[in-house]
Design a binder for these strands. Structure first.
Lengths: 393, 393
DNA sequence: CCACTTAAGCAACGCTGTTGCCAAAGTGCA
DNA sequence: TGCACTTTGGCAACAGCGTTGCTTAAGTGG
């Protein structure tokens, strides 16, 4: 807690203003990538004065976070100076604690992994051994990478867990972790700020950054769902450009959506869950049916949340990527034809990054707050219905 | 568009800062209701200095939006002065354009309707007659209520439509409205700013305010779903305290969630939609089954989005409220038992407000931006993981 | 070579919340 | 009744934000 009321929305002062704009500019610099942006383009994108952008970028350059990199072609006057993010200025650690393996990455500001380590892990063996392994791998990572300024470590685990409190709940197959304050324990061991989240959420966060890059700066990056089909079925939701966790980090529990009333019993006790139907189809080798079931679940989600695209991942999917992408896309296309809206196709694809998707995303748990606008409220919303409200006359 | 980049997130300057804090304080004043809040309590809730709160409230008082109202009991020193919102300082108009009826309310800042009018409406008859009727009713409302400062009009219609552009799409049964720029047309006729949204969204927004009141200031009001079962089935989603619309105002399309693979054909062309199953059960008099189907859909939603509560409304529900509330609650309770999380019960209740829910909510389309942190998309923060990032060291 | 155009920075400014201090308005004990 | 103490809330000075007005830098084109 920062000190203000119980979860209350904080008021903003000058430092908050400064931080907001700095993060905004930093985010645009990141989105620009290798290509860079000029000051005037930043001014146009933020709505700030060129002079304000000059001041902000001067501070970022002084901190080593940004640098000048060549100039554009002249359009009749002084050519624009191109600014670029300096990716190596800071780093973050991403940790993926899976059931049998630990993946640890050291990522730069651009999210690119500069060092990766893998180690076997007995997750169900309990805290002490896991913490020791993590500590050793992180130390190796920091040493091998020289000694770059590390901002913190993001940790991705199988759910359920509480992101806000940093506490694990009863992970399936690893009951003894229930209630363990993993975030604080790790923060003490590593001497770094730590952020804990579900593996699917971390993956979605990492993918959000990639997609934002791909699609340009456009429109706050929109919304997508990352569906992960491995030994279970889960989802990570990015809504309106931001990861949606829900109040108790419970959002994205996609596996036990019921898509068949009174269907076969699922391990969770209910009937007709997507996960049960999907995995059963996989088990009997009927991948087409598995993809169709997954597609129906995805279509429900797309329609309910007005989502822009669907990304698939997880071991089971990766064993037959074309089959799943095709099957899910088929269902979505069928439903898009009948939709009342513009009927825009919702693209389906395999989540890039392969086996490292989650670890890369875990690093983003630390990096993401540096970029996008902290203070969601400070920025006048993107809608502004009509000529904006007349300033409380 | 405000002038900055294409949908880009705007930078913040001093006026934005001022507006943010003013809205924040105004929101807390509204939440306090009749009871009022002291300056120091506002300072604690916002994290601002008492002196800053004094300045902000002084401005609000000068604008007539807030006023002093008595004092608290002393705790050994000077007693605190209680501040209250002045509800009558401004007003907003809420319009519910239903298929056969127009409901128009004039609401004060607290959202309380101070005047209500109803008129028959032939929605499918097309724009000209509808606009004329609306203009007449609004004029009557403004005249009868004296001449209070009216901020604008919120308009709630059956979907689908585009909230951002203010344009209707192909409303079922009223094809000739497709593409009509209702917001701008009404804005010109009425000489007021106009905001357009789906009826379910307006209802959810209005209910969000009521719930926020009920639950105290707690936690940004959390999340809930409003399920509307009338001639169709739709939903309004409030996530993280803010109404979630999706990029194309398509969020909340709940009726055509598939809950029975290869179930009976629905009017939309798909099979096994909740709406079809639910309405079919209603038609054959099996209300228990209708409630159960609705409950399964609600449970999917609760689990996927980590929602705090479910509110039911709409004509069909209101004909048998206890039956639906009980049936839905039953399904949710069954599933809560098997849930891995804390298993907190998700309460189910009838949405208060009865037939005026949507019109009241429509007024909130105008009022909501004045209060509390505007929610751009979702930007779900409220986390700030650990000691907050060390300020980009 | 010079007029013109465009980019970027310096200086002064208005306005924000903050800090330091003091007046106002109570309680409680002598 | 009087005085010490506590708490609230405003006044004044201040640091720092983006903005405005203007100047300097760095190109193009005739």
């Amino acid at each position: 807690m920062t000190g203000n009321g119980p979860g209350g929305n904080p008021g903003a002062n000058l430092p908050a203003l400064r931080g907001h704009n700095a993060a905004l500019v930093l985010g645009l610099l990141r989105a620009a990538g290798e290509q860079g942006v000029s000051r005037l383009e930043l001014a146009a994108a933020t709505g700030l004065t060129p002079q304000a952008v000059s001041k902000i970028t001067a501070r970022l350059r002084a901190d080593g976070l940004a640098g000048e990199a060549g100039r554009r072609a002249s359009t009749g006057g002084k050519p624009r100076t191109v600014l670029r993010l300096v990716p190596g200025a800071r780093h973050a650690i991403g940790l993926h604690l899976d059931r049998d393996e630990l993946t640890a990455v050291l990522a730069d500001l651009a999210g690119e992994p500069v060092a990766v380590r893998r180690a076997p892990l007995a997750f169900e063996a309990g805290a002490e051994r896991v913490l020791t392994t993590v500590e050793r791998e992180v130390a190796a990572l920091r040493e091998r990478a020289g000694g770059p300024l590390v901002l913190g470590a993001g940790v991705a685990c199988p759910g359920p867990l509480d992101h806000t409190a940093g506490v694990l709940h009863r992970v399936t197959g690893a009951p003894r972790w229930d209630g363990f304050p993993l975030r604080d324990a790790l923060a003490e061991r590593l001497g770094l700020p730590v952020v804990l989240d579900k593996d699917t959420n971390a993956a979605a966060l990492g993918l959000a950054q990639g997609i934002r890059e791909g699609a340009g700066t456009g429109e706050g990056a929109g919304s997508f769902a990352y569906l992960h089909l491995g030994t279970g079925l889960g989802a990570g939701l990015v809504l309106g450009g931001g990861l949606y966790r829900g109040a108790r980090t419970g959002a994205g529990e996609f596996g036990h959506q019921v898509v068949q009333l009174d269907g076969p019993v699922c391990g969770c006790g209910k009937r007709g869950c997507v996960e049960a139907l999907c995995l059963a189809a996989v088990a009997r080798g009927d991948l087409a049916e598995a993809a169709r079931v997954l597609g129906v679940g995805a279509a429900n989600l797309v329609e309910l949340l007005d989502i822009d695209r669907v990304l698939l991942g997880g071991r089971t999917v990766l064993e037959n990527p074309e089959g799943f992408v095709g099957g899910v896309a088929q269902v979505l296309a069928d439903r898009a034809r009948t939709r009342t809206g513009a009927g825009a196709e919702v693209p389906v694809s395999i989540a890039p990054g392969g086996a490292r998707t989650v670890a890369d995303g875990a690093a983003q748990l630390v990096l993401a707050p540096l970029f996008g606008p902290r203070h969601p409220g400070l920025a006048a919303r993107a809608d502004v219905p009509q000529a904006s409200m007349p300033d409380v006359p």
